[in-house]
Amino acid sequence: MARIVTISGSPSPSSRTKAVVEYIKNLPAAKDWQADSIDVRELPPEDLVHARFDSPAVQNTVRLLKQAEGVIIATPVYKASYAGLLKAYLDLLPQDVLSGKVVWPIAVGGTLAHLLVIDYALKPVLYALGAQHVLSGVYIEDRWIRRHQEKILLESEAEERIRALLERFVRNLTRSNQRR
């Protein structure tokens, strides 16, 4: 059983970004995971703003990340970059916390004009945190995500891309486990 951690970097309580993460965790391919979730908006704001590296809440997330084999990190796109809340959190993590992990970045934005935010903004930070195996990210326009009666619905294009990358994520987790 693979141990993964999902990170939702959205400051919004009704986040489409978090909805995508929950959607992925409920797909059949993810049922064999032991999945822990980090919702950055639920961390104490004063710990993030005052850069409290030793915060018990932040240290708990570091422990989860160190135990994980895979990490799914999702962010909304604001002003052509990933969320500032996520940046504040990532700045508190140890430099090698993603070493040896399979990392899958996901971004949700309002327009395809921000498609490259994963490659040019988020991936460099993930590499700075020790990630060596960062998968191709998936960018999803927020209009492709809907909620209907407590259920997350994705447009077919987004759903196909997520399912294809999920298969790749699972294959890479399996390979990573076999090397250990």
Rank of each mutant, 00 (worst) to 15 (best):
N26I: 00
S55E: 06
L86V: 08
Q178T: 12
Q132N: 14
A19H: 00
R179I: 12
A57V: 10
Q34Y: 14
V49Y: 12
E159P: 00
I7N: 03
I140K: 08
L165S: 11
R146D: 15
D119S: 10
V77Y: 04
S15F: 09
N60L: 14
E69L: 10
I152N: 01
S8L: 04
V49A: 12
T17L: 09
P45Q: 14
L129C: 00
L122D: 03
L93G: 03
L122A: 06
S8D: 07
Y120A: 13
L86R: 09
K87F: 09
A19Y: 02
L165C: 01
L65K: 03
A88R: 01
S8H: 02
L173Y: 05
V117N: 03
L48P: 02
I73G: 01
Q178I: 12
A88H: 00
I145N: 06
L98G: 00
D47V: 07
E160F: 08
S14C: 09
H50F: 13
R175E: 10
G9D: 03
L129K: 01
F169R: 03
V58M: 02
P44S: 03
R163S: 09
K79S: 07
A88L: 14
Y127I: 14
L64D: 13
E46C: 08
L93D: 07
D32F: 15
P11Q: 05
V49H: 07
L112A: 14
S81M: 09
Y78G: 00
R146Y: 12
L129P: 02
I118W: 01
A80G: 07
L48T: 01
H133C: 06
I152Q: 04
R147M: 15
P105S: 13
D142I: 10
R146T: 15
E141I: 15
R52Y: 06
A51Y: 09
D119Q: 11
F53S: 03
A2L: 13
R63P: 04
A68H: 02
R161V: 04
K31T: 09
R168T: 13
R3V: 14
D39V: 15
Q149H: 15
G84N: 10
A29G: 02
A19K: 05
I118H: 00
V97R: 02
R171L: 11
I162Y: 03
L92Q: 06
V117H: 04
L27Q: 12
S8V: 06
A57I: 07
L135G: 00
Q67K: 10
K151H: 13
Q132I: 13
V62T: 07
S14D: 13
V138I: 10
G70F: 03
E155W: 11
Q132R: 13
N26V: 00
A51H: 09
D54W: 01
K25H: 11
A80M: 12
I4E: 06
A83I: 12
A128Y: 09
D142L: 13
E157I: 12
A83Y: 07
Y127C: 10
A128C: 04
L90N: 01
L27H: 02
Y23E: 11
Q59P: 08
R41L: 11
R179K: 14
N177E: 15
L135P: 01
W104R: 02
A88T: 06
D91R: 01
I140Y: 08
V108D: 04
K79G: 02
N26D: 10
W144L: 14
L64P: 05
L165T: 07
Y120V: 14
K87G: 06
K123S: 10
R161F: 13
A128L: 10
V102C: 05
S14T: 13
K31F: 15
